[in-house]
Amino acid sequence: MATSEIRRNFAPAEDMSFDAIQGSRRLKGMLLVAFSILALAVGVGMVLTLLIDVLVRGLPWLDWQFLTSFDSRFPERAGILAAMVGTALTIVITVIVSLPVGIMSAIYLEEYARDNWFTRLIEINIANLAAVPSIIYGLLGLAVFVRFFGLNRSILAGGLTLALLVLPIIIVVSREAIRSVPNGIRQAAYGIGATQWQTVWHQVLPVALPGILTGNILAASRAIGETAPLVTLGALTFIPFLPKDLLDRFTVLPIVIFNWSSKPQREFHDVAAAAIIVLLGILLLINLLAIVLRQRLRKQF
């Protein structure tokens, strides 16, 4: 009989050993999990090693003098004052420009745009921009801001370039935040006679704000770590002064790290490690800020 012929291929129904999964079958699953954990361990282990290495090498150099001095040809006199000021000013410009434009784009795409060719063009375009290598943005800034608009290799040119770089990220995270606002809120607002903008401004944005802000802070932290576009733009590696205004020449922390790392002297590598500690510390603070802000705002609304 057909049934019993097939049934013979497996443990018979009378066999009650439910734990009889073949060893090799179970082993394969365990190997897969083991490999996954190994993969995680490699990534995390490498970054842990990196952090420890950086801390061991950089901490002895990290003092008040390091934070308040300009760069120098001598490692023991080198500092990151100009770089920190440069980073701060650049990021302020980046945020001031990209935040409103990004949020406005997101509002348009989520609340206003109809499903037509123009909307699709913008959406495809944003997806493509997000995948353009950052160094290409440097070339864009060099051609457009530095030369075409005559801003020279200035803080303003750098900030604007980074603003374009993070714009796709800001749009994407802001859209997600706006999309997650329940539709009932919009309908309720329309129901009492609010216009579209009143609905967006008074109801949708306040609810979406925690998500938007968190996403934007993370985008800003991406901008802080960017090196390649600013190098390409022509930001300097060696700046022994503080910028007078936004059209002055500048450097930023990542570029200083890059510069010191590529010097042959070992002492400069240690100084670079100290600068990395500062950079990672700043990023850590910003991310903590994002988390705290999100919690606070969540409670409020």
Partner: peptide, 19 residues
């Protein structure tokens, strides 16, 4: 299942689902 508890600790859910 035929008098054997499928939720007993030594029972493999994978083998349960095969049967």
């Amino acid at each position: 299942y035929r008098g054997h508890n499928l939720y007993a600790p030594n029972v493999d859910p994978v083998e349960v689902r095969r049967r």
